[in-house]
Amino acid sequence: MSYAISVNGQVHHVEDDGQTPLLWVLRDTLKLSGTKYGCGAAQCGACTVHVDGKPMRSCTLSLERASSARITTIEAVEGADVRAIQDAWVAHDVPQCGFCQSGQVMSAIALLRTVEKPTDRDIDLAMSGNLCRCATYNRIRAAIHDAASKLGTPT
């Protein structure tokens, strides 16, 4: 079946099984490889994308369901908060192997869009669905606090 799917502001016509996980449509069909496969079971968060602005795991979202929403991936997510987060990620040298970081960044952006000044508890609640085997968690936490305070400071 053919589905019209809106990804990063562009409508693509995808000919595929409606039960195909969005993750594989993004990676294999649309060649957007920033969104990663880590577990395929909504356990690790490496495949997090924004669906109508909300963070969702693309490994457990069908093409059929995704076709009725606006999808944003790490490649095209933008805004002052995105820049603040990515700057903080670099300033803290957060990544090690880096494989989970697309998902971490997407979750962190969604967090700051929900809670302007997250507490440690807010960060725990929002980010515990994103695994990092290199255990860069402390730096992720520091970078989120850093980005939040930079965004809160009028320039």
Binding site: G40, A42, M56, R57, S62, V115, A126
Partner: peptide, 30 residues
């Protein structure tokens, strides 16, 4: 697993909703 909480409405914390992973139907591939 992962660690999640009920939040205010039983639908998850405001920053990690049940709907982050759970859709309208069972999803066999995942």
């Amino acid at each position: 697993v992962p660690w999640v909480t009920r939040g205010l409405d039983g639908g998850g914390a405001s920053t990690l909703r049940c709907s982050t992973c759970h859709g309208d139907t069972n999803f066999e591939p995942s």
